[in-house]
């Protein structure tokens, strides 16, 4: 097994409030050909962790400590120009909110093609064919190549981003809730596509999701985040079947069942806080 990504002691604070850790000293390792799912509370720092790996943190935030080692190189010290060589080519990213990362005035075909031209030098007929094939792979008819992002449905935009992120067949894919806007049948198609890349290219995947059904289906390892910290991590069977941390247990107890019999019940945070203090 070869180590693909090693995050060590990553800590992120707002510049305006340096005492508030949004991501608080987190560490984990991802191996080639493996999938690590990151789950946890809304607002616990999952997306910020992903953005930090990509070197795309907002200018209002500071990575005050920690290392991001990608294939043995500390990429958190690279210049923006050096990062651009890696981003989109060796590391692909699917962002949580498609509209924030797609350019509204460029067609989706152009945006998928841009990555291919910049990183692989594809042009002309080769480029067109590759764009069409990528669109088809994510289940969008190739005739939609000239559509602008706002002419697509929410799930179609998300799939355009998926097509962009895998265009150059990266060795690491960071996927931030990549299938939240997809119905289960299209989701299954996308997960299969990613799994093929994982097998064929030994691609490693960091996959942020709220869907424990997806976790159960695709994860090798699971990282659980709560209030900026990793409270638990381990092999998928271990975390889902024998959760150790009270937060993980409480979160798993909230997973809705498919036949609607189990009553909806959010976590009782007062109880959880007491449990942690004790």
């Amino acid at each position: 097994m070869s180590e693909l990504l090693r995050i060590e002691g990553l800590t992120i604070t707002p510049k305006s409030a340096p005492e508030r850790c949004l991501v608080d000293d987190i560490s984990f390792v991802l191996e080639s050909g493996k999938t690590t799912c990151v789950v946890g509370e809304s607002g616990s720092g999952k997306s910020l962790t992903a953005l930090a790996v990509m070197g795309l943190l907002s200018s209002q935030l500071n990575q005050v400590a920690g290392q991001v080692n990608f294939q043995g190189q500390d990429i958190s010290r690279l210049t923006n120009q050096q990062m651009q060589q890696i981003r989109g080519k060796r590391i692909g990213m699917i962002f949580q909110e498609p509209m924030t990362s797609l350019n509204p005035v460029l067609t989706v075909g152009y945006q998928i093609g841009e990555t291919l031209t910049v990183h692989l030098g594809l042009k002309g007929g080769m480029l067109k064919a590759r764009i069409a094939s990528l669109l088809e792979q994510v289940g969008i008819p190739a005739e939609r190549v000239n559509s602008y992002p706002d002419e697509l449905s929410g799930g179609q935009r998300q799939r355009v981003m998926i097509a962009m992120s895998i265009a150059c067949e990266p060795v690491l894919l960071i996927a931030d809730e990549p299938t939240t806007a997809l119905d289960v049948t299209v989701q299954a198609q996308i997960l299969k596509l990613l799994d093929e890349l994982k097998t064929r290219m030994q691609m490693g995947m960091l996959f942020i999701t709220h869907d424990f059904g997806v976790v159960a289906d695709i994860a090798d390892n699971v990282v659980v985040m709560f209030r900026g910290k990793i409270v638990e991590s381990g092999a998928v069977d271990q975390v889902l079947n024998q959760p150790q941390h009270p937060y993980t247990k409480a979160l798993l107890a909230c997973v809705p069942d498919a036949d609607g019999k189990k009553p909806l019940k959010p976590i009782d945070y007062a109880w959880l806080n007491e449990g942690q203090a004790a």
């Binding site: 789950v39 946890g40 509370e41 809304s42 949580q96 809730e177 939240t180 709220h210 424990f212 409480a250 979160l251 909230c254 997973v255 809705p256 909806l264 019940k265 959010p266 976590i267």
Partner: peptide
């Protein structure tokens, strides 16, 4: 986009 607890 919500975790299962907030979702509930």
């Amino acid at each position: 986009a919500l975790d299962v607890s907030i979702q509930a």
